[in-house]
């Protein structure tokens, strides 16, 4: 197993952790933050697998804009999941 593969595995583990976290937490703001982290980690994976275009999109959309839009929505509806 090369270093490259190990890196992939690490990222995949991180992704799963993030997703489980998103499913578990009741606080929407935390969930959105975790979601942004998820996107950023995924962006690393894309970059590492040789898809810079996708990586850029993922970083800007997933980690950036989506998180802002989610936060804006949370400001309206309250941050606790009912």
């Amino acid at each position: 197993m090369s270093v490259s593969d190990l890196f992939d595995l690490l990222i995949l583990a991180l992704l799963i952790t993030c997703v489980l976290g998103i499913a578990r937490v009741r606080d929407l703001a935390t969930a959105v933050t975790l979601f942004a982290i998820y996107s950023f980690v995924l962006c690393l994976l894309w970059a590492h697998r040789g898809a810079p275009d996708v990586a850029m999109t993922e970083a800007a959309v997933g980690a950036g804009i989506t998180a802002v839009l989610f936060f804006t929505a949370i400001a309206k509806i309250g941050r606790r999941e009912k």
């Binding site: 810079p52 275009d53 990586a55 850029m56 999109t57 800007a60 950036g64 804009i65 802002v68």
Partner: peptide, 21 residues
Amino acid sequence: LPGGGFQGGVVLGAMLILLAL
């Protein structure tokens, strides 16, 4: 180079939103 309209647009949009915030 890697990149394009979508990526650039999102970056630009993020910048504008940041400014607004």
